[in-house]
Design a protein around this nucleic acid. Structure first.
Lengths: 240, 240
DNA sequence: GGGTACACGTGAGGC
DNA sequence: TGCCTCACGTGTACC
C-alpha cells in the first residue's frame, strides 16, 4: 500500500523536533473520517479503517509520551520503552521508600528530644484508641446494626504525606454513627491518629487523620464508601 | 482465521489466575518456530508469522507488566494503561519533589535551632545532599506580603443548615498562611464561628464553621478560591 | 538475505 | 444497532 500514513516508527522517534504538543489528549494530526480519498465519503469499510488508524495513532502517541517522561531510554523500541518505564517506576518506588525512611527518621529525631516531653497527654487525649476498645465489646451485631444506616453527605480524602491521610466526612447524626465509623476504619485496617467531631443540628462533621498504607486517595475513598454501604446492609455484597 | 492463538485481550486481563511469571524476560508460552500446523515446517511465510506473533506477545506482556507496577488503573485499555502509567510517573515526580522539600526543611530546621536545642550535631550525616541548604537560604526572601502565596490543595464547602457552612481547606504551611486565610474570610464578610487547624509536615488542614448568608456552597467555594487567588496576586483580577 | 520492527487493513467480539 | 478494542497475517523498510 504505502500510502501517506505509512510513516516509519524509528524515523519519527529519531527526529528531535517532532511536534509533540503536550502529554494530554492533544489531537494534533488525527485523521478525518470524511473523504479519505476522492469523494467517497462514509464508506462502510473506510470508516473502520480510519477509526483503526486513529486508535493506532493514539496508542503510539501515548507510547511516545511515556517515553518522554522516562529518562535514559536505552532503545527506541516499543517493547523497550515499556520495559524501561517499568524499571523506572520500580526505581522510583525504591527511591521513595528510601527517602521516606530518611524523612521519618529525621522527623522522629526532631519530635523526640529524648530528654523531656512536656504534655504527654496532649497526643493521647486526642486519639481514638479508647473508643475502639469499647467497640470490641459490641463487635458484630449484624442483626440490629443496620437500623440506623450511615448516610454520607460528604466524603473527602486527601493524602498528607508519610502514609497519613486526611478524611473529611459529613454524615447524619444517629445513635451509633460514631461507633460504626470506627468499625469501618478498623475493618479497613486504618489507624485513626486523631479525630475531631462536630455535631451540628442533624449532621456530624468528622475530621480524621488516619494512618494508611494505601496512598491512593481515590481507592481509599471508594473503600470507605464501600465499607460504609456494606455496613449499612450486610446482605448486599457491594453497593457501589 | 480464528486459530488457537486468537485470545481475547480483555478476557486475559480479566481472569485473575493469568500465569504471569514475573516481570523480567520470562518467556512462558512463546510460540515455537517449528511446525505451527500440519507438517509444513519452515515455510517461508510461516516463519514471519511466528515472529510477528512472538513480538506481539512480548509487547502485550510488557504492557501487562507495566500495568502491574502502576496502581489505580482506571481501565484495562491498552491506551489507558499507558496513560495511567504516564500520570503515575508524573505523580511520583511531584511526590519526590515535595518529599525532598520536606527533607530539606527538616534538615535546615535541625541545622538552625531557632530557640534552643540540646544536641545540634545529632546526626547530620544522613547521606543526602548538602547543596540543599543553599536553596533553603534563598527561599527566605520575604519581599512583601505576597511572597508566600496560599497554595490550596483541597477546598470543600458544605452547607450545614441555619446559615452555617462547613469549610474544609487544606493548603501549604507558610509563615502567614493563617493570617491570610483570616483576611480572606473577613473580606468575604464570613464570620468564623469555630476553627480547627492541624499542621502536618508541609500542609495545613483547616476545618472551619462559618456563618454566611449565602447558602449556595458552589458560589461560596468559587468566592473563596477567587479571594485567595486575588490575595496571592493583587494585580491579576482573577487567577482561576 | 535472514532478522527485526513497524503500519496497515480486516474480521471478530464486547458493550 | 454502531462504536470500540483487539489479534491476526501481510507487506515493507532498515540493518
Amino acid at each position: 500500500m504505502e500510502n501517506i500514513t505509512d510513516v516509519n516508527w524509528e524515523s519519527i522517534l529519531q527526529q528531535e523536533d517532532y511536534s509533540w504538543g503536550g502529554l494530554e489528549e492533544t489531537f494534533s494530526g488525527y485523521y478525518d473520517s470524511s473523504s479519505p480519498d476522492g469523494g467517497q465519503s462514509s464508506s462502510p469499510a473506510s470508516k473502520n479503517i480510519v477509526s483503526e488508524r486513529n486508535r493506532r495513532k493514539k496508542l503510539n502517541d501515548r507510547l511516545f509520551a511515556l517515553r518522554a517522561v522516562v529518562p535514559n531510554i536505552s532503545k527506541m523500541d516499543k517493547a523497550s520503552i515499556i520495559k524501561d518505564a517499568i524499571e523506572y517506576i520500580q526505581l522510583l518506588h525504591d527511591q521513595e521508600r528510601t527517602i521516606q525512611a530518611e524523612l521519618m527518621e529525621l522527623e522522629s529525631q526532631k519530635l523526640e528530644p529524648e530528654n523531656f516531653d512536656f504534655n504527654q497527654e496532649t497526643k493521647s487525649s486526642m486519639s481514638m484508641e479508647k473508643s475502639k476498645k469499647i467497640r470490641v465489646e459490641q463487635a458484630f451485631d449484624s442483626s440490629g446494626s443496620s437500623s440506623y444506616p450511615i448516610e454520607v453527605q460528604d466524603l473527602h480524602v486527601s493524602y498528607m504525606g508519610e502514609k497519613t491521610v486526611l478524611v473529611n466526612l459529613t454524615c447524619n447524626k444517629r445513635r451509633d454513627t460514631i461507633v460504626k465509623l470506627c468499625e469501618v476504619f478498623e475493618s479497613l485496617k486504618l489507624k485513626i491518629v486523631t479525630a475531631n467531631i462536630y455535631a451540628f443540628s442533624e449532621r456530624l462533621s468528622n475530621t480524621l487523620f488516619i494512618q494508611a498504607d494505601e496512598e491512593d486517595t481515590d481507592v481509599l475513598k471508594i473503600q470507605l464508601e464501600t465499607a460504609i454501604s456494606t455496613l449499612n446492609d450486610p446482605h448486599s455484597p457491594m453497593s457501589m
